[in-house]
Amino acid sequence: MRTGWNERVGRNAFGWGLVLPSLLFLGLFTYYPMFRAARLSLFELNLATPKPRFVGFGNFAALLKDPVFLKVFVNNVWYAAGTVPLAMALAFAMALFADKAIKGRTFARVAFFYPNMIPMIAVANIWLFLYTPHFGLLARLASWVSGQNTSLLGGPHTVLGAMIAMAVWKEAGYFMIFYLAALQQIPKDLYEAASADGASAWTALGRITIPLTMPTTLFVAVIAMTNAFKLVDHLWIMTKGGPNHASSLLLYHIYETSFQFFDQGMAAAMTVAMVALLLLISALQVFGWDRSIHYE
C-alpha cells in the first residue's frame, strides 16, 4: 500500500514537473491575460474614465444596444458564412485534383498551396491592386459586368463580397493540405472493391471518399470558422473597416475600440463575447458532430 502510494505521487510529480515549464508560460502569457481581460470587461475604463469603475455587466448590456457592434457582428457572420463553405469545397476539389493528377502533380500542389505561404498583409496588397478602379483586373471585370465604372472596395454592398473572395483564395490551399492527407489515408482496396462491383466514380466519391474524410472536414471546419474571426490583417491595408463599417469585422473593431478610441472596458467586453462565441461554435462542432463521423 505504502509503496504504491509513494509510487503514484512520484509518477504524478514527474508528470507535473514535465508539464510545469510550458504550463508556466501558458499561464503567464495566455491564461493570466485572459483572466485580466475578463475582469476588465466588468469595468468602465476609457479616456473620460481614467480610473477603472466597476459596472458589472453594463458593458455587455451596452454592446447589445450599440448599432456599430451589431453591424460588425452581422458582417462577421456573413463573412464566415461566405468563406467557410466556399473555401472548404474548393479545398476538397483541389485535393481531389492534386491527388489524382499524375502529370504535374507537384506543380498543382505547390500552385494550390502557395497563396497560403504569403502573409495576409502581402495578400491584401496584391488584391488591393486587383481591385483598384481603372487598373485592377477584377475591377475591370466588375466594370465590364456592371456596365459602369465600379469600385468594389468603395461600395458598401460589394466590399464584403470582395473580402470573401480574397479569403477563400488564401485559405483554400491550406485546407487542401489536410484533405490531401486524408485522401491518402483511405485504403485503395475500397475503391478497387467498388469498381469491381460496378460503382461509378461519383458513387465512390459519395459513398467512400466523402464519408471517410469527414473527420478532416470537421477539423477543417473548426479551423476555418475560427480563422473567419481571427484573420483581419487585410482590413488595415484595404478598407480600414469602411465604407461606414461595411467591411469591419469583430476583431478589427475590438482593435479600433481599444487602440484608437482607448475604450478599454468595452474592448475587453467584446473580446470576452468573441471568445465565448468561438468556444461555443467549436464545442458544438466537436461534441455535436464528432460521434457520427468516425468509422472504425
Binding site: L128, T132, F135, S151, L153, G155, G242
Partner: peptide
Amino acid sequence: PEGIIDWGTVPTD
C-alpha cells in the same frame, strides 16, 4: 468618379 475614391490610389492615378 462616383462612390468612395481610395486615398492611396489617387496619387497613383
